[in-house]
Design a binder for these strands. Sequence first.
RNA 1: GGUUCCUUGGCCGAGUGGCUAGGCACCGGUCUGCAAAACCGUUUACGGCGGUUCGAAUCCGCCAGGAACCUCCA
Length: 488
Amino acid sequence: MGHQLSIYNTLSRKKEIFEPLHSPLVGLYVCGPTVYGDGHLGHARPAITFDLLFRYLTHLGYKVRYVRNITDVGHLEHDADEGEDKIAKKARLEQKEPMEVVQYYLNRYHKAMEALNVLPPSIEPHASGHIMEQIEFVQKILDAGYAYISEGSVYFDVEKYSKKFHYGKLSGRNIEELLETTRELDGQSEKHRSMDFALWKKAAPEHIMHWKSPWSEGFPGWHMECSAMGTKYLGEEFDIHGGGMDLIFPHHECEIAQSTAALGKETVHYWMHNNMITINGQKMGKSLGNFITLEEFFTGSHKILTQAYSPMTIRFFILQAHYRSTVDFSNEALQASEKGLTRLLESYTRLQKLIASPTSTVEVKDLREKCEEAMCDDLNSPIVISHLFDASKAINTVADGNGTISMEDLEELKSVFKLFIEDLLGLQTENQESTNKDAYKQAIDLLLNIRLDAKKNKDWATSDRIRNELTTLGFTIKDTKDGFEWGL
RNA sequence: GGUUCCUUGGCCGAGUGGCUAGGCACCGGUCUGCAAAACCGUUUACGGCGGUUCGAAUCCGCCAGGAACCUCCA
């Protein structure tokens, strides 16, 4: 390894060399979904981004503890302190237990993640399973003097906190100004200031999810779960915290404030944020109603989609852009990704069948190095992919008989492709259910061998019939110099 | 209004001072019974105007357009 991993830290707004606190151990926390609806394209972005990070850190030899939470309580609609709990609302509408709603959407989320070949995290804690930890965390903030109790709810005192610490350091918000302009107390609210946020909320009578606490029968504020669960599983200081850019404010800013107030120190060393997926230049999101669920992508059932897209196409589409860029959805862009992915994976299949020669006419020696370099540069997956395409051109040249490759180079190329395509980018190479059955494979081979004989006898009718009928069934048939290739 | 960021060829999308990104599409060619695939070649760029520099897509300023956050969102 000639390179050091550098990652962009939102705190400093620049790339920094990654130095773990307790190498080889690495703590990674990523904000997971609020499970009150089906996962959409937007959910796939952080999942895939941090899956790539998880895989790469592991490849570098780190022992990663990856925590991705499940928000199943406390996430309110409309206003952080006034709206209805999202899970509870869904449960009310569907006349179900809140946990029934949670389990249903969580199962579907897991299924989608598995399809996208996103590795499961080491720990997937539920907010509702850590109420005690959250109550203790709130108590610590109260004890430290940075929170106040009002009508059974507990609020974070942003003004007091900002006298000693920097509230706004992550989002770049200037809180001094806001404090000036909101000096007047708002008599309508339990809160002293509009910018104060809830650590614990007293449950209104209609709320169906509530727990006992020293202050009231109620539930934790949304930001609380990440502070409590992150520090519980990764320690009071840990390495990386990730999530979508839209969570920077208020969620992550509040998390920093909570942890700093309670523990007196910075908990997170590197903050990483993936950018948004847009549709017609606008953010794709639940609240905007312009989202397409992952299920709809896989089946092509959304009206905006001209076809179905496989999970691997979605994954490749996302990896073809850098995680800190916005990426704009369109059928055209997805179809381009689909074709590109096919090209890449077909050359990978061809690679397995190449015959070595005494010498090489293709250059493969620095491929591994170039790919590692790109990954180390803040996970630049598009560059990795461009290098792999260069290599796939070399593979095709050799496969066509227009070049040669030595045994040494061939082994290196196989090793690099396996590492980057399968292990790191996580692109599954074949549909294992359909092509792994030997009898099935041999039957297709038999048909195509019959076609080959027909071709030799210039029996084009038989030859074309076999090709056309197989094509109709969804196969792709390609003639090569001395035989054929096929796929589904 | 405040904060942050973006504008690259027909489309997507890297690149942050000099060296062909890459993919998709298009066109020409090789191969093929035909087709597909593959390979070779070609074409289309850095929002506008200034500035710094020997040299700028890349740095600085202004202008235009767009986005995210400031209320829940990945």
